[in-house]
Design a binder for these strands. Structure first.
Length: 325
DNA sequence: AATCTAGACAACCGCCGGCAG
DNA sequence: GCTGCCGGCGGTTGTCTAGAT
């Protein structure tokens, strides 16, 4: 048995709100508050669904909302929190006064996701693309790895192609290990527009090459931020594991060198440790308390984790608007 | 000047959890 | 404990606009 719809769709207006409707809704809420959204449109004289009214109010009309552009620090906060919470937009928005989950979500989807992709960072895992490819290569036997890498390439293809064909890339090789040009990653990075047609082949080739590399030790896994490697990794992003020492420069974006948060690499050592430690913490607690311990459950639900991650992210918990305890 | 395209943002949809009866 | 309602949430779609062709 399905749920009763929240309103009769036939008698309900949809689409963009007019200033008159906004005015009616604002006036009604100012007088009566926001109890029972179902009754609000009826009482306010609006031919709208209660849900639509609630959305309009929370996303647009609320007096405490900010409507301007996101600042650098807001973007930085979103990226950091997203790496911890994923697409929990309401949680992220709760830390940004005046911003709604819809704002944050839209901003992420239209700007930040591309920004990160353009920087060679997977916006889902917040790890360099190279990290993901290398993980595939080092954890699976070659036949499976090749197939999985191809699948992964498919996932990232649009982002990578967009990056290669639309954005200027400013990768700088710090250590070119092979002056004869045998470093396929180097040639990949030195991509020129007229090579567009074989871009995909180059990416595939780069992946194959990555998978042929000998198994990595912690010393040549730049993203492995455990212990000693963490410090060296912070501040720079190694774009491909096979070319440790490549320094990523977020040059395609306007803020390079201007001292803004984006002029620093987003993927700091803490980026990696946050996720790694989350897993380690969970494992440890599960060992000590059993999988169903309350603490383990809380960690899974993200409550205690939040404060832990704030430390990892250099976000003082007292600075948070809504610390979740 | 007309058309196309991509980006930005507003709005909708369906699912889920909490809660009261 | 069960059921139905409500509000919240995240994903997706629609619409508008500015810039490119």
């Amino acid at each position: 048995m399905g749920r009763i719809p929240c309103c009769e769709k036939d008698n309900v207006k949809r689409g963009q709100w007019t200033p008159e409707e906004d005015n009616k809704l604002s006036c009604y809420i100012a007088q009566h508050g926001t109890r029972n959204w179902r009754l609000i449109p009826k009482n306010a004289g609006l031919q709208r669904c209660g849900k639509s009214c609630r959305l309009r109010w929370t996303n647009y009309l609320r007096p405490d909302l900010k409507h301007g552009q996101f600042s650098d620090s807001e973007e930085q906060t979103i990226v950091k929190l997203h790496s911890v919470f994923g697409n929990r937009w309401s949680l992220i928005a709760a830390q940004l006064p005046g911003r709604t989950d819809n704002d944050v979500k839209n901003h992420w989807n239209t700007k930040l996701k591309k920004k990160l992709s353009g920087m060679g960072i997977d916006p889902v895992t917040h790890k360099p693309f190279s990290h993901l490819m290398a993980e595939i290569a080092t954890t699976l036997a070659p036949p499976q790895a090749a197939h999985l890498a191809e699948a992964a390439l498919g996932c990232f293809k649009d982002e990578v192609l967009h990056l290669l064909t639309k954005k200027k890339i400013n990768f700088q090789a710090q250590h070119n290990t092979d002056q004869m040009g045998n470093n396929n990653i180097t040639s990949f990075m030195n991509y020129k527009p007229d090579e567009k047609e074989d871009t995909t082949e180059k990416i595939t080739f780069g992946l194959s090459k990555a998978m042929q590399e000998p198994e990595m030790t912690s010393n040549n896994k730049p993203w492995d931020c455990t212990a000693a490697t963490a410090a060296t990794f912070e501040g720079t992003c190694s774009v491909f594991p096979t070319v440790t020492g490549f320094q990523f420069s977020p040059a395609p974006f306007a803020n390079e060198g201007d001292g803004s948060p984006w002029s620093q690499c987003v993927c700091t050592g803490s980026t990696c440790t946050a996720l790694d430690q989350q897993g380690q913490l969970q494992e440890k607690l599960q060992e000590e308390n059993g999988d169903d311990s309350n603490i383990a459950k809380e960690i899974r639900s993200g409550s205690n984790l939040f404060n832990a991650q704030c430390v990892l992210w250099d976000l003082p918990s007292e600075d948070l608007i809504n610390p979740m305890v």
